[in-house]
Simulated assay, not measured.
Amino acid sequence: MIYIENTYICLVAPLLLVCLILRKRTGRSLLFIIFGMTSCLLSAYVSTLFAGLTQTDMAEATYQISPAVEEIMKFLPMLFYLLVFNADRKSAASGMMLIAAGFATFENVCYLTANGSEDLVSLLIRGFGTGAMHIVCGMVVAIGLYLLWEHPWLRAVGTFAVICFAITGHAMFNVIVGRPGLSLWIGSALPITILIIFYLVLFPLTDT
């Protein structure tokens, strides 16, 4: 039996301590990562609850419930940050990607704890594939926030649209990697490829 709460405490405790002595910007970045880990922990509870209420087995929940729960839970800390602190679009977009990275990190650690560390190939596929998927979904939401949040009449509809897009992409990834063999390799390589394309396209634009 895996006690993910204990894993969460071990990971978050040193990050919280170092936040106390770091500068504001760096400490805020670490807090976003902690928020991502917290979202992952809460997503596990919420997904299990909905799976029990709907009498859905874990395989079907991976495709039907988890993508929606996880993407919404990743967005909630950022929504709080935007509404309460009136954050600017740039810091919100960066924070969303850090939340996604924290989420993926905690999920990978839980996977490692549950399945062991003997199979290096599986861990590489899991670490890079799933990690890239969460970051790509977070980046989609971040780009949506950056482009739409300054227009009040687009905030609600646009935010709902980009979250639905992220949920759909997440669910498609889970379906593809749910099968062994070539499908698993293709599904894991796809978000990594998208992430590389994002890097090549967006970073030159931000430097100009």
Rank of each mutant, 00 (worst) to 15 (best):
Thr56Ile: 09
Met37Glu: 02
Ile135His: 01
Ile192Lys: 02
Ala44Glu: 13
Ser66Pro: 00
Leu147Gln: 06
Met97Ala: 12
Gly187Gln: 04
Val162Pro: 02
Leu145Ala: 11
Trp149Thr: 10
Ile143Thr: 07
Ile2Trp: 02
Ala68Met: 13
Leu148Gln: 03
Val18Leu: 12
Leu20Ile: 08
Cys10Gln: 13
Phe75Lys: 07
Leu98Tyr: 03
Thr105Leu: 15
Cys164Glu: 14
Lys74Ala: 07
Asn174Pro: 04
Thr159Pro: 05
Phe160Tyr: 04
Ser47Asn: 07
Asp57Asn: 14
Ile65Trp: 02
Tyr111Asp: 00
Trp153Ser: 12
Leu22Asn: 10
Leu145Lys: 05
Leu16Ser: 13
Phe173Asp: 01
Leu123His: 04
Cys110Leu: 12
Cys110Pro: 02
Ala61Met: 06
Asp88Ala: 02
Glu71Thr: 09
Ile176Thr: 06
Ile33Glu: 00
Met37Ile: 02
Ile72Ser: 12
Cys164Arg: 15
Leu98Asn: 03
Gly27Ile: 05
Met133Leu: 12
Met1Ile: 13
Leu20Trp: 00
Ser39Arg: 05
Ile186Tyr: 03
Pro77Ile: 05
Ser188Tyr: 04
Pro180Phe: 03
Asn108Gly: 06
Ile167His: 03
Tyr63Asn: 05
Tyr3Lys: 08
Ser91Val: 11
Ile197Tyr: 07
Ala92Gly: 12
Leu202Ala: 11
Met1Arg: 14
Met133Phe: 06
Arg155Ala: 08
Val201Leu: 13
His134Asn: 09
Arg25Asn: 15
Gly158Cys: 13
Met97Gly: 05
Gly52Pro: 06
Leu195Ser: 14
Val46His: 00
Leu76Glu: 07
Thr206His: 14
Leu205Arg: 15
Glu5Arg: 08
Gly36Phe: 00
Ile72Tyr: 10
Met172Ser: 05
His151Gln: 15
Lys24Thr: 03
Val109Arg: 03
Val157Arg: 10
Asp207His: 13
Phe50Gln: 01
Glu70Gly: 01
Met139Arg: 03
Met133Cys: 09
Ile176Asn: 00
His170Leu: 01
Ile163Thr: 10
Thr208Trp: 04
Tyr45Trp: 15
Thr56Gln: 08
Ala166Val: 04
Ile4Ser: 09
Phe165His: 05
Cys137Lys: 10
Met37Cys: 05
Ala142Gln: 04
Glu118Arg: 14
Leu190Glu: 06
Met96Asp: 01
Gly158Asp: 12
Phe50Val: 09
Leu20His: 02
Ala13Cys: 12
Thr7His: 08
Arg155His: 07
Val18Tyr: 06
Pro152Phe: 04
Arg126Gly: 02
Thr208Glu: 15
Trp149Gln: 07
Ala189His: 05
Ala13Arg: 12
Leu112Cys: 07
Thr105Ala: 12
Leu154Ser: 08
Cys19Ala: 15
Leu182Ala: 14
